[in-house]
Structure formats: C-alpha cells, structure tokens
Nucleic acid binder design. Structure first.
Lengths: 210, 210
DNA sequence: AGTTAAATACCGAAATATGCGTGATAACAG
DNA sequence: CTGTTATCACGCATATTTCGGTATTTAACT
C-alpha cells in the first residue's frame, strides 16, 4: 500500500463540484486519503470490497438508492466502516432514519475545510461528529415530557406495560390486586385515548411519557 | 443587573475544590458569570427562583438528591434552563437517565479550562456539548441491528405491532388475511421467544430490531 | 430436480385483555 | 375543613390474542 498510515475515505456524492471539493480537502490532510469518489450508492457498493474504506462520506440525497438505504447496505457488508452523512437539510426525520441505518456522524454541506477534517478526526478518535443543531435534536429526542397527564402510579404501570408485563405480573410486582392494575390501565387508556397495551406504548413513546 | 450581557451560570457540585475551580473558570469568561454555586440539589432548587440561572453545571454524584433527580426538578420548575451534566463516570445507564431527565449536555470532570467554556458556548448556540465517547454512545443507541433473525415481512409486521395496530388493522394494511397476520406474529414470537405483543415490542427495542 | 425458506391461509380451544359499571379510602390543596 | 385527585378493589360480558396444529404456493439455492 502506498500510504499505509492514512485512513481510507470513500466519497459518495452526485454533485461533481462538491465531490471534487471534498476530494481535495480530504487529500490535503496528512491523515486521510480518498480511495475513491462515486456519484451513486450502487457504484460505491459494487466497489466496497476493493476500496475497503474505513470512513465513508455519504450524501443523503442521491439519484437511485438514497444515502440512507446505501448506509444500511454498506453497514451490512462492512460493519466496521464508519459512515458520516453529509447533507444540506437538517430535517429531523431524515436525521433519525440515517442514524438508525447506521450512520456515525451527520454534518452539513456548508461545512468548511476545517469542519470537514475535524469531523473525520472526531470519527477516528471514536466520537460522533454532528452539527450543533443535530446534536441538540438527538439529545432532545431523549427528553421525557415533564407535563405528562399521567399520575406517578400510572406512569409506573405504563413503564411495566412497555416492558411487556401482563396484568398478573404487574399486580404481583406492585403488590396490588389484578383488578387494581386493570383499573389503572383503564385510566391510562382513557387519558391517552387508546385501547390496547401496544397502542399505549406507541403513544407513550411518541409523547415521551416514559 | 450589574452585568446584563453575561449568561447566568449556576454550579451544583459537592466537592468544594472542583466547585471553586469551576467558579474561577466560568467567571474568567467575558460571556458567563456564576450566579451561585451549591453543594447540593436541595439548596440549588431552593434558590432557583432568585438565582434564575440560564445554565446549570450539574454534578451527577451528589449527597442527598442526585444530579439526575435534581435535573428533573429543575427542568420542571424552570424549563428553559439548560443543564449540563458534569461527571467522572461515563456509565451508559447514567448517561441515558440524565438525558431523559432533561440534560442538554454531558461532559467529564477531566474537562479543562477551554473545554468547559467551549461546552457553555455550545449550549448558548443551541447545541448539545458531549464528550466523544458519549456522543458515540448516544448515536450507537439509534443504530438498528442488521443481524435481525426476522424476515423482511416479519420486521414489517413487528413495526406495525409497535405502532399499536391490531391483527385486523395489520391484515388490512398489508392486504393479507387476518389468519396470515396471525401466523407471522406467531413466528415472530417464536423467534424472539416472547408471547405477547408488548413483550415483542420490548424485545424489539432492546435488541434494536426496529 | 430437489430442498429450503418465506409468505400465504385456515381452524378450534384456551388464555388474556378490554369495556362498562360501582364504590371505598387516603392524601393533598384551596 | 371540604372538594378533588390518586389509589385501590370487585364483577360480568365481550373482544382479542395466543397456542398448537395443518397446508399450499412461490422464489431461491444447490
């Protein structure tokens, strides 16, 4: 290998100008080298085994297979490759989809020279580079709603429901009768306007009640 | 107000040395001022209305009420106050508990002068300061397991179950008979070794199958 | 061509959960 | 001190889910 100490970076980006620009920036670094740059996920995936990238800079919006689907495939074929999404949009649904697909970072195309290299460095040291807005988006996603309509006991029971417990198990765990558990659950359903355990779990997750 | 342009920072930390050290660092900045530093959440909460902090630097391990419980209370009483957890440990359970409680950042006590101020700056610009390891921990938490034992169809159905759908709704949505939906769900249960929808959801979340 | 995996479909019995009542007691706030 | 809320408890009818089978078709793989 010509440059054994440089981390191998693959670029997937359909806009040729941006692709060239990323290429130049990455290759300007002593620590990274571009092994290849492609205009589509399909091409990138076809050459994955030969290129053996350690890091992929992946555009989200792409013709054909999009960056999120591509991330899934690449992660499946090469689990140790770290993928950094690069996008113009910071749409929350896309961000979470990309993270679920296996992305380890999410930066914007407005990222300048320094920011792009900083993101790569961050990946190498085991971090997860994100723009400020995305970091906040991700963190906010964890926050539990403090204005829950449920009482403490109801929340406790909803928690047990979300763990897959039956009426009987819940009543045993809380030292109350099965009938009482039933009543609490009935009240939970009424407050959340649902009529089954799984619907209650879905709503609880949606409104971050647990 | 004496210094109207400085962001008001409250410190909650039981170790007096660290408390003083943070105090000096924060006050050394042109952009931040320490409104008060307490050794316990109880004291901090009692003085919340008077101190009106915009940012709280919160120790996790504290005598009496711990930093996570304290975060919940402060977020409840003062939702717009941003809380940054400061800790020696990067234990994953604690991190997620803190984030659920409402923390907007999570840094380690090893943070030096620059890092601490950088975290405060990051909060001000709407971000979420985190150490590299914690950022990765948080991102990894989103990743879906690519080695799911379930087939595509089963995963699709598990997804619908997690949205609270009934057998009938699932069969209608997928244009299959109720009996077929039943069979798929039976197979899902067998593969996941569970025996109810909510247990399946719990296991799916635990093993990141959806 | 033969095997396997996946998706489809049906049945009946048993177990759970849900809907709609009622009502008592304790704790908390105005 | 009184009204409200939370927690607890019971019963019956109905609905839904789960268990344990069987079985056909199609696509993929060897």
């Amino acid at each position: 290998m010509a440059l054994p100490f440089k981390k191998r970076v693959m670029i997937v980006e359909d806009d040729q100008e941006i692709r060239n620009s990323f290429n130049l920036i990455v290759n300007s670094s002593q620590k990274f080298m571009v092994v290849n740059a492609y205009g589509s996920c399909e091409e990138a995936i076809d050459n994955l085994n030969r290129d053996k990238p350690e890091i992929v800079l992946m555009d989200v919006e792409l013709p054909g297979m999009n960056g999120i689907q591509g991330t899934k495939v690449i992660k499946d074929k090469s689990p140790h490759t770290d993928i950094v999404m690069v996008t113009v949009y910071e749409d929350s649904e896309l961000v979470f989809e990309a993270l679920k697909a296996g992305a380890s970072g999410y930066i914007t195309k407005s990222a300048n020279y320094m920011e792009l290299l900083a993101a790569l460095e961050e990946i190498v040291k085991g971090g997860a580079p994100m723009s400020s807005r995305i970091a906040r988006m991700v963190i906010d996603n964890f926050h539990v709603n403090p204005n829950s309509p449920l009482t403490k006991r109801e929340t406790e029971i909803l928690q047990l429901i979300s763990e897959g417990k039956t009426y009987t198990q819940i009543s045993e765990e809380l030292f109350i009768s099965k009938e009482t558990a039933k009543t609490h659950i009935k009240n939970i359903y009424s407050k959340l306007q649902v009529n089954s355990k799984s619907e209650a779990i879905a709503k609880a997750n949606l409104e971050k009640l647990i």
